[in-house]
Amino acid sequence: MTSTTVDHHHHAHGHLDHDDIDVFGFWIYIMTDCLLFATLFATFVVLRGATFGGPALGQLMSLPYVFGETMFLLASSFTYGLAMLSFYKQHRNWALTWLLVTVVCGAAFVFMEVREFIELYIEGHSFQTNAALSAFFTLVGTHGTHVSIGLIWMVLMIFQLFRYGTTAAINRRLTYLGLFWHFLDIVWIFVFTVVYLMGAV
């Protein structure tokens, strides 16, 4: 309590310390990433019917398969939360365990997506086939790339947490990654709704 009061005197103008401002900055980056995805969604919706005489996108997708992908990504978002809760309680090993589970779920998601892309390519539905497929691969691939980068980042954080323990710096970095990871799950809601479900209506 006393330390909080002292803290306030040091920051005469208010309520934010450096870490708060840094995390807010990262949040602004996440919001600009929203705009990137918004442009790709707009492009996709405009071009999704432009199949150049080929089959509609909806006929190329398997909904149960996409449901499986969705479950892996949602599970990883949840287990990331469990990792943070363990971190707050200073349980380093539990936090490490949950981060590993999160990596496994995220990797399963990326694996399934890459497999889907490869199967489409083998069947002759590639990026160059028509505008609809170009827009599809760009949108879904950009999301998948984000998830892959998040996975690399998470592996790095596992090493850092293992090496340095539950420090304030690690807390800040895991908060960044948490914002990024939950954000990607939120973008995926719109990917499976707009690309896969609306494509199958």
């Binding site: 708060d20 949040w27 479950m71 949602l74």
Partner: peptide, 22 residues
């Protein structure tokens, strides 16, 4: 960090709502 406390309850609520809606 501008976020309300993360609790087991909030995460379970989010998970179950997301599952139902999906």
């Amino acid at each position: 960090f501008g976020a309300k406390p993360k609790t087991l309850k909030s995460y379970f609520t989010g998970l179950i709502l997301s599952l139902l809606l999906t």
